[in-house]
Design a binder for these strands. Structure first.
Lengths: 249, 249
DNA sequence: CAGTGGTCTAGACCACCAT
DNA sequence: TGGTGGTCTAGACCACTGT
């Protein structure tokens, strides 16, 4: 018996398909262009529709494609670069108005949040909902959890509702001295309500950015921001060098 | 005709399945425990295997499950918290040895990297490969791109290979004054070689952390680190407050 | 309404792992 | 070798979008 090749492992069809499609997107399609529909593409490549969809799903995950039910599959623009924090410690709602307050109410936080806040899980906290847009498109939805104990003047909130109440909570936060903050990023899937706000289907991949705000020797607030993973690239508090703007293009 | 319910939209089966399984994982299974196999589970829930798999895929994406071919599906431990950078600007390879150099060679960078470095795409650069482990498991693979023009003493590399060469490149970097850096995170899917290093299948979801290092008025190096998205939660340069360790548990 | 992507089925075969 | 998850098929129906 002669020496043979190490038996080239057969590449899965959907993986090969993804490569082919990816190259075609680079060379033959413009941003925003509509691809042939899935049944057509599957036939053209000689595979089942499910197999084609596996390739499309990956490309959508990588931000190369955008699929909308009832409409079609389009070539996605490059990911939107969104800055998360500015490297400075600051309360949410302080700087320029990137986030748009939606409403606020009292509710019981999820267990993980309650643990981070150091409050009992059945203790209601203020929940502020905000949404972030970029170029008109919603890119993130945020839930900000603030224990009643954190706010100096809770009483004034009683008469407010909706966005006005949200703004009031954020305004109260600014009065506290902020000791520091803490940020983490992980992959998640969109809950039904976030998905709707982000114009996606439930379960869509999202980047979860969790920020803990420290004040008065404890965790004064926790923010969980849900960013669309398909369309966003997150940048973080940069220790800026010279000419960073020039290199951005 | 009477006033009717707004026709409750039927929740997809896989979505409901995911919820049921998720609750079962919380209450009835311990970390590391092996679930019944997919055919068994599908039968038990009265759905096709493909539908069950859709639910399992989501749970794996969220870091709740771990699936290994030929072995089975196990309950995953909480995500590993990995620190990305320390808030200080520093060259890679400077601090404590979190990353383990693998090898180094000259190669043509991907277009996107070449653009960031400001060099022609067909200009070979030094590519250093490193791997990062946490609790014995590989969590990230990195490609560090360094243009020849960045390094003061390239000649000495000629006789070196493998990890020794990688260490030499990193050592040379330390001699340069670092002006600043720049970091972004986005979702991607693992290339075949990275997937193998991370003990995953190609296409597995990963968090791509891109760092640009600025020196001498330009981009002196670019690092692209590929973190397992299913098992990692990334934390970033914290503007630390008091007691952050205490709250970690 | 016609056309799109999203969900679901009931099979089949394959690659991998432990035994 | 037997059992696991991974890939693939060829259908079907549903939910949503635009006209």
């Amino acid at each position: 018996m002669g020496i043979t090749q190490p038996e080239t492992v057969p590449e899965p069809k959907y993986w090969h398909l993804k490569t082919v499609l990816s190259e075609a997107l680079d060379s033959e399609f413009a941003v925003g262009e509509i691809l042939p529909n899935e049944r057509e593409l599957a036939a053209r490549f000689g595979v089942a529709r499910a197999t084609l969809r596996q390739a499309l799903e990956q490309l959508e995950l990588e931000g190369r494609l955008q699929r909308r039910r009832g409409v079609g599959t389009t070539v996605a623009p490059p990911r939107t670069v969104v800055a998360v924090g500015d490297g400075e410690r600051s309360w949410p709602g302080g700087g320029p108005e990137i986030w748009q307050p939606v409403d606020s109410a009292e509710a019981q936080p999820p267990h993980a949040v309650a643990r981070a806040l150091g409050v009992p899980s059945d203790d209601p906290v203020h929940v502020v909902r905000r949404i972030r847009r970029s170029h008109g498109q919603p890119v993130a939805a945020e839930l900000l959890y603030v224990p009643a104990a954190t706010l100096p003047a809770t009483a004034a909130l009683g008469t407010l509702a909706g966005a006005a109440r949200a703004r009031a909570v954020l305004r109260e936060l600014q009065r506290l001295p902020l000791d520091g903050q803490d940020r983490s990023v992980e992959l998640g899937s969109a809950r039904a309500d976030d998905a709707k706000k982000l114009d996606r289907l439930p379960g869509a991949p999202v980047l979860l950015v969790t920020t803990r705000y420290f004040a008065g020797g404890g965790t004064a607030a926790v923010s969980v921001a849900t960013y669309r993973a398909d369309t966003c690239r997150l940048t973080f508090g940069d220790t800026g060098g010279p000419g960073m703007q020039l290199l951005a293009g």
